[in-house]
Design a protein around this nucleic acid. Structure first.
Lengths: 189, 189
DNA sequence: TCTCCGTTGCACACTAGTGTGCAGTCTACT
DNA sequence: AGTAGACTGCACACTAGTGTGCAACGGAGA
């Protein structure tokens, strides 16, 4: 039904991932349509980006709330969360870049609930002495999450080779000892 | 003599720090001059940014090579480097944002030598088992350095309160155990 | 006083993007 | 065959920035 619309969204994620400043024209031609068609589906550039962000938030909060329900320790939850978010993180890496800039405020607003869930998880970890307390949970969660995205971004292949490294790195940063971090990661099914 | 030129450079760092997409007009009025005057000193926007970057690279490589000469262990070197780079990092935080984008290539080229020095330091740390090896030195150094900038960016006051947290966080990420990290940081004169 | 020289104010050309209007075409469905 | 809906192609108005040219201004120093 809306296959063109979906293709535009998929392609926009790719194109903006390569260059967050890409214009509607670039997205259109990458999707094999004309610029006017894109405006037919998304009245403005902001609409497109908002739709993309909503998609990301939906996918990510779904994963996070599912993981949350497991009742495991905070560090184990984090490992599971990153493992499941990893394939998605690379696709949506552009959102991190787009948070500073013209649409920053809009994106920030949509990402807000996800940020809170993450901060909660980190806070619980800090309260039970699983995570270190050198930074407040709000900042620590953002930085740790940002590192995962940054590694996803440095990873050319989007393969699972980087997922392990990203998980270990973020765990270390959260204050989990290296031996425990490696044990947790290697426990993944 | 060149007090206007210097003021423009200083102010540009502030303005671009707040908004990396600020135009020459924004910089000019923030510096209390007219746009035309800015073009009198810097023929193009790229010139301005290049000059800013050269300044940053000069300051930072000076610090890093000085620290390098101490012959200390890699983790101690890192602590000293961050401690001395911290006041500068906040001012030049814009460069991290500017690396992706229009002038990315130019900035990347200028920052190259600094990147290599950092990667060398991390590699030496990995070789002597002071740093973990979950990521190749080139990526690990970038991520660790990025985290320091990111925390500097979250820090509203640019006070030294965040410096401690940033140093600990980057050490943890580099694989230094928490107790050792804290000991190192508290050893700072 | 005269003269540089940095600065100003304004006009201009150019680029590159956004978003709209509208008539025409193609295709799938009835 | 006919029609509805999506897509196209093109023109247009608008915004916002870059970089240039040039005459005029004003102050510090010879």
């Amino acid at each position: 039904m809306n296959e063109t619309r979906d293709r535009i969204l998929d392609v926009a994620l790719d194109v903006l991932g390569d260059n967050p400043d890409a214009g509607m024209g670039d997205i259109a031609s990458a999707a094999g349509v004309v610029r006017r068609t894109v405006y037919g589906h998304f009245p403005s550039r902001l609409d497109l980006i908002r739709t993309l962000t909503e998609r990301a938030v939906t996918e990510m909060t779904a994963v996070l709330t599912e993981v949350d329900a497991s009742g495991a320790e905070a560090d184990a939850m984090w490992v599971e969360f990153i493992a499941r978010i990893w394939p998605v993180a690379h696709r949506y890496r552009v959102l991190l870049a787009l948070r500073r800039g013209e649409y920053g405020e809009a994106i920030h607003g949509l990402l807000g609930p996800l940020d809170e869930l993450l901060a909660d998880l980190v806070k619980r970890g800090q309260d039970s002495d699983v995570f270190a307390q050198h930074l407040p949970p709000g900042i620590l969660s953002q930085i740790a999450y940002g590192v995962v995205f940054a590694i996803a971004d440095s990873d050319p292949s989007n393969g699972t080779l980087g997922a392990r490294a990203a998980t270990i790195t973020s765990l270390l940063m959260l204050g989990v000892p290296e031996t425990r971090a490696i044990a947790l990661v290697d426990d993944q099914p």
